[in-house]
C-alpha cells in the first residue's frame, strides 16, 4: 500500500514537472533555441568572441558550452534596448577593427589576433566598445561558470550540503 502510494505520488510529481513555467524548463546548449536578437552574420562573431574570452584547453571553452547562446538569451530577455544595441554595435566594431588591423574577418583571425582586438576594445575610450567588452566578458564568465559542465566537473556544485561547521581550519 505504501509502495503504491509512493509510486502514485511519484507519477503525480512527474506529471507536475510537465507543467513547469516556461522559464523553468530544462535546457542545455544543444536544446537552447537561438534568439532573433542577432543576424546570421553576428551570431558566429559572438561565438568567436566568447571563445576568445574563454578558449578550449584541456577543458571545453565557452563556445563549446553554448555560452554565446546564453548571452543572446540574456541580452534579449533581461537587458534593455541600450544593452542590446551595445551588443550589436560592439560586434560591428569587432569586425571593423579586425578588417582594419588584420585585413580579415574576426572569425578568420588566429587566437592572438582576436585577443589583440578584444584587448583593444577593453582599453578603448569609446563607451560602446568598453561597455560591450565589459558586458560580454561578464556574461561569458557567468554563463561558463554556471554551466552544467563546469559546475559538475570542476567546481563540484553541491545541491544538498546537509552539514554545517562554523569554524574549521583553512587547509590549502
Amino acid at each position: 500500500m505504501e509502495r503504491r502510494a509512493a509510486l502514485k505520488g511519484l507519477a503525480t510529481a512527474i506529471g507536475g514537472l510537465v507543467a513547469l513555467p516556461s522559464w523553468a524548463s530544462n535546457w542545455n546548449h544543444t536544446t537552447l533555441q537561438p534568439t532573433d536578437l542577432l543576424s546570421a552574420e553576428e551570431v558566429p562573431l559572438l561565438a568567436g568572441v566568447v571563445d576568445t574570452i574563454i578558449p578550449k584547453t584541456d577543458t571545453p571553452g565557452a563556445k563549446e558550452l553554448g555560452v554565446d547562446r546564453f548571452i543572446q538569451l540574456m541580452v534579449k530577455d533581461c537587458y534593455d534596448s541600450n544593452a542590446q544595441e551595445t551588443l550589436k554595435k560592439g560586434l560591428a566594431t569587432v569586425e571593423e577593427d579586425s578588417k582594419e588591423t588584420f585585413g580579415k574577418s574576426f572569425t578568420a583571425c588566429n587566437a592572438a589576433q582576436r585577443m589583440h582586438i578584444l584587448e583593444g576594445m577593453s582599453l578603448s575610450d569609446d563607451a560602446t566598445s568598453k561597455g560591450f567588452f565589459g558586458m560580454v566578458k561578464g556574461l561569458t564568465i557567468q554563463g561558463y561558470m554556471s554551466s552544467e559542465y563546469v559546475m559538475t566537473n570542476i567546481t563540484k556544485y553541491q545541491m544538498i550540503p546537509a552539514r554545517w561547521n562554523g569554524c574549521v581550519p583553512v587547509t590549502q
Binding site: 522559464w23 554556471s146 559546475m151
Partner: peptide, 15 residues
C-alpha cells in the same frame, strides 16, 4: 530539484 544551470536566465527574471 532544478540545478542552477537549468534556469535559462540563471534566476534573473526577464525584463
Amino acid at each position: 530539484m532544478k540545478m542552477p544551470w537549468e534556469f535559462e536566465h540563471r534566476e534573473r527574471m526577464p525584463l
